[in-house]
Design a protein around this nucleic acid. Structure first.
Lengths: 204, 204
DNA sequence: ATGTGCTTGAGTTCACATTCACAAGCAAAG
DNA sequence: CTTTGCTTGTGAATGTGAACTCAAGCACAT
């Protein structure tokens, strides 16, 4: 299957599709049509069919798509089939909130390590994970952790990102309000809650 | 000035521009060229010039754009000139982390009210704000609060959103992992951290 | 077995966004 | 005053994604 020709905008929508599909699956819904599905994900139905058609046609005319098949397909494309271990850097208020959020397993993620610079926190436990000293970030690669969530103050974000890159990480979810300079092989996604808020008044 | 013809993709980039410009301003940088600016925001220089040209030409050839003028312009377009009051619903771990985050004022936002359903929290103080009972959400309109940040469990997100809509809110930043059904006049932005994480493995 | 109603899948059209290339123009130096 | 170097602003071309439309086809009822 040639996934390489899937448009990037379609990829961007897939996690949203996945979430809705898992929701439908939990409700024991077996089939869903593009029309009904569009209600759940706020994407128009022709768009949904086009997206699904990129990775092969397996819908049933007159009926719709089988929910479990769709989930399998999307998990496969996003490489979420086996559990991905993720590291959390920064155990402040935000980091703690994130580590306790149970939505990660929906996407096959598991927070497998937490780091914090504060001596008060090192050695203590958040959930079931023991907080470690940041110099141990270098061991992430051998622990098979390739994704990191960065919840540190903006001042130390770049510095920490450099360490992560050095440790062989290839994906960073950056929650600091700043851009990170990283090599091209590393994918960075930045979420700045305040910044997202910035477009709201425009649409009023 | 005809702002109405500014492409939506440009609008989406403006908050990012604004953040970088404020950073430059704090560094006392007076002028910035599109080439230099592109390093800061990770957008190519012709794109930046095109974006700026949508809201009028005021760069100086051979020199660049005046940082403070740019900040004024963008604040004007995004309607961030006067301080916008925002309400925070949900004072759990995530809500608390958000209320203590000081990045909001960069965009002219101020958390002016906090609501939580828990009796333990009502009446206590987070930062300088006293946590209120959710039935007081109805008073938001008369308090001149038009934007809300929703940090409640997914189960009660829709119900709370309905209350907010009833209170005359016209923008919601939704941090729950679910879609919200709201009237068209209300703009919703959903951020699901786990979902954003979902695209990372694909790019590995 | 046949017809009916609904849904898929794809080809096409249209709209939008990005990139490119270059003329026009300011500033500073000689 | 003229020249040199750099940067803007924009029209044209290219690329990309969204919306539309409709023939093909499955399932179920009759």
């Amino acid at each position: 299957m040639r996934y390489s020709k899937i448009p990037s905008e379609t990829i961007r929508r897939l996690p949203g599709y996945l979430r809705a599909l898992i929701f439908l699956d939990e409700k024991s819904r077996e089939y869903v049509s593009s029309k009904v599905f569009s209600e759940y994900v706020h994407v128009k139905s022709p768009q949904i069919r086009k997206d699904f058609s990129y990775f092969g046609a397996f819908g049933t005319k007159g009926v719709g798509y089988k929910v479990t098949t769709l989930i399998e397909q999307i998990r496969g494309i996003l490489k979420l089939k086996e559990v991905q271990k993720a590291a959390l850097i920064g155990a402040g208020k935000l980091g703690t909130a994130i580590s306790l959020y149970d939505g990660f397993k929906t996407y096959g993620f598991e927070i497998a390590a937490i780091f914090d610079i504060s001596n008060d926190k090192i050695g203590t436990r958040i959930g079931e994970i023991v907080v470690e000293d940041p110099w141990k970030i270098a061991t992430l690669c051998e622990r098979n952790i390739r994704v990191a969530i960065l919840a540190v103050p903006a001042e130390s974000a770049q510095e920490t990102a450099d360490k992560l890159v050095g440790a062989g990480i290839n994906g960073i979810l950056n929650l600091s309000p700043c851009y990170l300079a990283v090599p091209k092989r590393v994918k960075v996604i930045t979420i700045d809650i305040a910044m997202e808020l910035g477009v709201l008044p425009y649409y009023s």
